[in-house]
Design a protein around this nucleic acid. Structure first.
Lengths: 259, 259
DNA sequence: CAGTGGTCTAGACCACCTG
DNA sequence: AGGTGGTCTAGACCACTGC
């Protein structure tokens, strides 16, 4: 029937509705946790057919503004605190002060951080990690896999890989808590002075297992960060593979303009 | 009507259809670039209503297996070449050699790069940009908005913002092509020697307008990068806001471990 | 049980692309 | 002009949730 709608604006009706609701969320009219109008209510209010109301809600869902529960309704998502990962979190002065990077950063975001160690022990290096560590694929390395929480919700899964010949001499690396300054401080204690780090950043959608590990909604984006720690001898002494819920992190980098 | 369908499997019909097609793509029955059956053909083949066929296609699209072009059809995606953004693309020596960063990087990825200028001219600074430029929101600044293509497909939209008092004296900044070494070289020509850059990286799902601008499928992830260029006088002389298709970029950074 | 979202039907018209 | 996807209507029934 296409109705008698005047069609002043060229934008699709379902997007107009979505935008209208998004505005109410932005302005706080619909605060976090609040239930948004049901689909039938939207049909009445905007005088549209069921399918149109549904598409409006679906749009808000992919935008990440709401989450939907079958049989209950759709609810405004609460903004998670943003964790910043600044590039100077690896400054030696921080390590000497005994700071653990993730603790400081999470607290700065106003969240209560916690960690759970998932595994510490020998592993066969996956192909991409082996390549970075300059060892043959399948070589035994030390893996340290941790899950980080912010206010109790999992936000980040990180796995550190270290060459076995380096790790075997540093008993702290096998402990759940490697001590003040983290594993980088322990590496430096044992003569592996760090010269620089390289980080590789990718973003993509979470896989099925990743959505469960980080308790994400399907289709949620993640940031995949891989870091090499390089000693002054030029050796890659650690590779850290990190998966983050994209909506909870901002990465900051400083780049000198010098030649 | 719900028809006399037997409903042996509990999975929704539209997902069964999507999975069926996905399997054909995986097996190579539908090779990259191949047009998948039209929606009306799917209706006939699977005996479903239009809406159901549509949802099946939509599912494949969010999975990233196909891309859809209005009026033409849906096509199996081919894996795009990856563009790396390395942190030393801003080295002064590169500027002096007259290299444009995006050209060099795209070519390295084995792709043919191109640019389209969308707008160059005065703009009122958006709030977040104004904050970075240390000017009042709504202040007039120079905006340079470009769309970058890799092998003809849009991959990146970038907008540079420059304070008007700086830009007004540099006529090249108002030209589509600012000359060898880009706008950073022109800034240095005019006494604004660059000391460092800071980059902020976020990842999220594309909004509807962004999906059309970069011709992405809805639900596709994007990398949002904001860069401040800081002169040796300590002033932010440019802010560049970049939106990238996440599946086409890898960001590399070097971080010194020094104190 | 009533209310909610999830799936599906069977049409209609519009907007875009290609020949 | 004919085919394609994009939007929309107006219903139906199913599945999950909470009272």
């Amino acid at each position: 029937m296409r109705s008698g709608s005047v069609r002043e604006t060229s934008s699709p009706r379902y997007l107009q509705i979505a935008e209208d609701l998004a505005e109410q969320i932005q302005k706080g009219v619909l605060p976090p946790g609040q239930k948004i109008p049901s689909e039938s209510e939207l049909m009445d209010r905007y005088k549209v057919a069921p399918g149109t109301a549904r598409k409006a809600v679906a749009e808000l869902r992919t935008t990440g503004l709401i989450e939907t529960h079958h049989g209950r309704g759709s609810f405004v998502k609460s903004r998670p605190p943003v964790n910043r990962k600044s590039s100077d979190r690896f400054r030696r002065s921080h390590r000497k002060a005994g700071k653990a990077a993730y603790l400081a950063e999470a607290e700065q975001a106003g969240a209560t951080p916690s960690v759970r160690v998932l595994y510490i022990g020998p592993t066969e290096a996956p192909a991409d990690i082996a390549e970075r560590l300059l060892v043959a694929p399948g070589t035994q390395v030390l893996a340290r896999r941790r899950l980080y929480f912010s206010d109790g919700v999992p936000t980040e899964e990180a796995t550190s890989y270290l060459p076995w010949d380096i790790a075997k001499d540093i008993p702290e690396l096998f402990a759940e808590n490697p001590g003040g300054g983290g594993i980088y401080a322990r590496l430096e204690d044992h003569g592996h002075t760090l010269a620089e780090f390289t980080e590789t950043v990718r973003a993509r959608l979470a896989t099925k297992p990743e959505t469960t590990a980080l308790s994400l909604s399907p289709g949620a984006p993640v940031i995949h960060l891989t870091r090499n720690a390089i000693s002054d001898a030029g050796r890659v002494v650690e590779v850290c593979d990190t998966l983050m819920a994209a909506d909870q992190f901002v990465l900051d980098y400083r780049i000198p303009a010098s030649d």
